[in-house]
Nucleic acid binder design. Structure first.
Lengths: 206, 206, 206, 206
DNA sequence: AATGAATGAGCATTCATTCAT
DNA sequence: AATGAATGAATGCTCATTCAT
């Protein structure tokens, strides 16, 4: 999804620098996932990583930069996984099912990361007090899903419906599947994903 | 939904006391909705209500008690509205559509309250660091929705599916409808609700 | 010089509030005078006053507000003293001598305050990094002194010279008299003031 | 003024070492002049010189040593210029005028250096919290100026007055001429210097 | 000779809570 | 019933200095 080269003006980082950043990001993810965004202070993140507070300040310009990096790494990973799975598929039905199932598949191995991602999405604010990633940050996802649904309508697979509502619902259903699974660890995530895929498919077909 | 009598061990409150609590709750709702949970300090809530910070501490045992009261009042109101609308309906299809439409109806007149409610749901934590209202707080809603879907299955209106997944998806779709409308004020909430009701109905019928 | 009423939008303060502010200002003056502006942290000022750090934050919006209050109180006091002494005088020579002598007189009883005032003048910066009170803050003083020198030129007491250079030199000579006396406590301040008055007068008369 | 040999216990430095020190000193001067002493962190000075922070620590025992070197180089330059100009002059009047005029002349080409010098003079403190260069650091200047004024008194050019007050006033007037010019870049520095020389001369002559 | 990395003390500020009045 | 005052812990951040490489 996102290559180092595309990214704006990044200085090349030394191996050690990169390792430290990765370590700090990992610690941040764990702490945020465990105690929530609001309690995830730099002090706590540093203590969890067994490093001094100053190290974080040394490697990141500020808390915001660290959080943004968490988002980029985490979100990049899921997007990469899902897009790979969807590559080459033709029918809208297949695409929609694959999206749901592959996201679930990714979730199984990345609970902590996705928990942290959600925390940051709903809490990180810019200096002017507005959410850094509000629901508007989901726009790319909505557009992608709309593409799938519109494709199905054009091919005749799907009935006529509001693709925006469908996309928003689809997206939230997937997110909530994750949240529900997090809260109920014994829950069968794959079964849930299959049920959800059925549900969405049935809602669309003529 | 919630009567004074049910509530645990509440001493009866004087009229003045009740008025003050209501005033403070109202101020809290407005502040939380405007600046978000994390920035909604007691100082800010007090200033918004044009009272001294101490008043809040006097009337509420702590910030948590205030937040809980916000939730109870706000959540009680929506539940009351929706249950009234659903009363007397028989078919699962009618119940499911009415749920979606009446929630949307209520949303239109209670943006601020529901915004605050959402903020508290996703942010308020108990002393031990866990979310006070996690997704588990939705259990009563899930059970109620499951009841509707199971009813539809038993009556033959609906096909066979996992009612829990359906309920979770339904619930999250409604919540996200609200969030999307908050972020896009020009969005047609009622149309969205009708589309969503169609979508859910189609997903269920045989 | 500065009455409470002139000042912009000051809420009336309670007696206790005023007393605390005065105590904190006094502590700030002592600490700044002793350790210099840069080392005069709020923590140090609070400790010196034997109060908690939070008290300062409670009574002052920030460090800057405290520093500004120190300046206003200290500068107001000296201006009041000097203006009182000069009131009613007619001749430029008398005015100029009285200015020098009365400032010195005030200095003798207000060493610490004036030391602190100087520290703040040369160190306090606004958020954008510029000196809050640079040499440009001396403009009112320069204008007042220019008035005296111009008066002398118009009355024929004084020769023709650049009144701005004269005012700047006069002002700095008075300031440095203070600094020199601070560094050499045994120095005879009054004798210095008389010599300086002579010096300035001689420089002006025809 | 100051030769390498006089300086206490300096090991001879390699050419590279000397070049690096000079580069760092130059960077320090520019940063201090631009942002003020308090904001002139080693990090900032290093970044301005496009070198790593560690380089400064490598070449200087600490921040203080760097600052002292800035002072010595800067102060040495002005002293050298002024002394050269005064060399050979006989009359006290000539000496006094030449001092004022040649300092002004030097100022015109060394704004940044002198700004930095002033910042360090008024801010640099030793470990025990006292100003490293207080007004007492001006003692050599005072002594030199006293020499001129005493010469004038002995030769009969000048009236009888307190040479110390005269020297202190002279010195501060020159310093403030610089500060005023820095704050008002359009100000005519040479005219100011001539006026000041006139002023001082008139204050002295019988 | 040079550096990137790390440290830990110190900074101003915010905040929920306590308490005497 | 209400408040202004005070507290002290916590937060993100800066900085001079140290050190292994």
């Amino acid at each position: 999804m996102r290559s180092e080269i595309e990214s704006s003006g990044q200085k090349s980082r030394s191996f050690i620098e990169e390792a430290r950043r990765a370590q700090i990001v990992a610690s941040a993810i764990e702490v945020i996932a465990e105690v929530g965004f609001a309690q995830a202070s730099l002090a706590r993140i540093a203590a969890h990583a067994d490093i001094s507070k100053g190290v974080i300040s040394y490697h990141f310009a500020g808390k915001e930069e660290l959080m943004v990096e968490v988002v980029e790494r985490t979100y990049g990973a899921i997007a990469e996984h899902v897009l790979t799975k969807m590559q080459g598929l033709q029918s809208a039905t297949e695409l929609l099912r694959t999206h749901v199932l592959s996201v679930a598949e990714h979730m199984r191995g990345h609970r902590t990361q996705l928990k942290a991602l959600g925390e940051i999405f709903t809490n990180l604010r810019t200096a002017d007090g507005k959410l850094r990633y509000g629901i508007k940050a989901s726009e790319p996802t909505y557009l992608a899903l709309e593409g799938i649904y519109r494709l199905g309508q054009e091919s005749g697979e799907f009935r006529d419906f509001d693709v925006r509502v469908m996309a928003v619902t689809h997206s939230s259903a997937v997110d909530t599947m994750f949240a529900y699974w997090m809260a109920h660890p014994g829950h069968d995530l794959d079964a849930h994903a299959r049920e959800l895929a059925d549900l969405l498919e049935r809602a669309c077909v003529t």
